[in-house]
């Protein structure tokens, strides 16, 4: 059992490292790095389930009978593309956030937001009184 499932356990550990980085780190680029690790580990999960003992790459050729399952390969090709699309868009947002807030740390941004929130509320109450 240990050998049969060892691969899956390693994948789970990798995924969780990625997820931990996403949640625990305040730096926006690091969060995206975490997401990338998380997604890549899912790819490994799919690819390892496609594997067949003694099989070969799914390209038909003379004298080969046993092939790996091609379907997960196709799915993951799509998922890789989706992953890079998300990364690109996320990074574009980070660039804009840096320009708008001058920081890419979650705490600083939240702090700045709270300040603007307070200011508008103060203005609002002043407006009411007048």
């Amino acid at each position: 059992m240990i050998i049969g499932l060892f691969n899956d356990w390693v994948v789970v550990v990798l995924m969780m490292i990625g997820l931990y980085i996403v949640i625990a780190h305040g730096n926006l680029i690091k969060k995206i790095v975490g997401l990338a690790i998380f997604q890549t580990s899912v790819f490994i999960l799919y690819i390892s389930m496609a594997n067949v003992e003694g099989g070969s790459a799914p390209i038909l050729a003379e004298g080969i009978k046993q092939f790996s399952n091609p379907l997960p390969h196709v799915l993951i090709l799509t998922a890789i593309v989706v992953g890079v699309a998300t990364t690109a868009l996320g990074l574009a947002l980070v660039v804009r956030i840096k320009e708008a807030y001058g920081s890419i740390e979650e705490e600083d941004i939240q702090h700045l937001d709270n300040k603007t929130q307070d200011e508008t509320e103060i203005q609002a109450t002043e407006g009411d009184q007048s």
């Binding site: 926006l28 969060k31 997401l35 998300t86 868009l89 947002l93 956030i97 708008a100 807030y101 937001d113």
Partner: peptide, 12 residues
Amino acid sequence: RRALWASYQYLI
């Protein structure tokens, strides 16, 4: 500018 931050959070 908070739209950017909201969008980033949504993305994650």
